[in-house]
């Protein structure tokens, strides 16, 4: 029986592809983008708590300190997370599967069969362009959790990965 499910274990049949890291310059990129995010958050919260100054109810200082705590926590996370995220992030693409491994607090391992992908996008935000980075986004059919993102790729590498995926899918229109 050539049943795909009870076949030999995958490792014996096809060596696992070597895991690839993100481009190291993603760390400064993350520092910058997270820092900007924190600044925006701080500005919003500062604006929001301005009118609290006049208030003397018991909850006014609670809100104020809460906002301050939020900004502090965000700042600490901004300082700590980029290198950790870089160390954790790894991915691999071959003709069959896209594998991803990431997450600092919540570890995640994702596997997507290449032929199940509906379309493949390259996304480059303004900051990403500044650093010469790109994000690869692939979509599968389905409603929830159908988008998979690989951030922090060098633009050329991202394009090469996209082409490789499209070739593996059999779309020879490149």
């Amino acid at each position: 029986m050539t049943d795909p499910y009870s076949g030999p274990p995958p490792a014996a049949e096809r060596p696992a592809p070597a895991l690839e890291r993100l481009a190291p310059r993603v760390v400064p990129y993350w520092y910058l983008s997270d820092l900007l995010g924190t600044i925006v958050l701080a500005a919003l919260l500062f604006g929001g708590t301005l009118w609290l100054r006049e208030r003397t109810e018991w909850w006014a200082p609670v809100l104020r300190w809460g906002a301050l705590g939020l900004v502090a926590a965000s700042l600490v996370w901004t300082l700590v997370s980029p290198p950790l995220a870089f160390v954790r992030w790894a991915f691999a693409v071959d003709d069959e599967l896209l594998q991803m491994r990431y997450g600092i607090v919540f570890h995640e391992e994702r596997v997507v069969p290449v032929r199940r992908m509906q379309h493949v996008d390259l996304v480059r935000g303004p900051l990403e362009r500044l650093f010469g980075l790109a994000t690869l986004v692939v979509f599968t059919a389905g409603n929830e959790g159908s988008a998979f993102r690989v951030p922090g790729l060098l633009a050329a590498r991202a394009a090469a990965l996209r082409d490789r995926i499209l070739r593996a899918r059999g779309d020879d229109v490149l």
């Binding site: 919540f106 596997v111 069969p113 599968t140 409603n143 959790g145 159908s146």
Partner: peptide
């Protein structure tokens, strides 16, 4: 099957556990 995800939060990691989530094209 569209994709398979393994997830482990801090407590799960402490206990050496993980959650497997299987995605198909319809439903949750």
């Amino acid at each position: 099957v569209q994709s398979v995800i393994v997830r482990a939060g801090p407590v799960e990691r402490l206990l050496g556990l993980a959650t497997v989530t299987v995605y198909v094209a319809g439903g949750s």
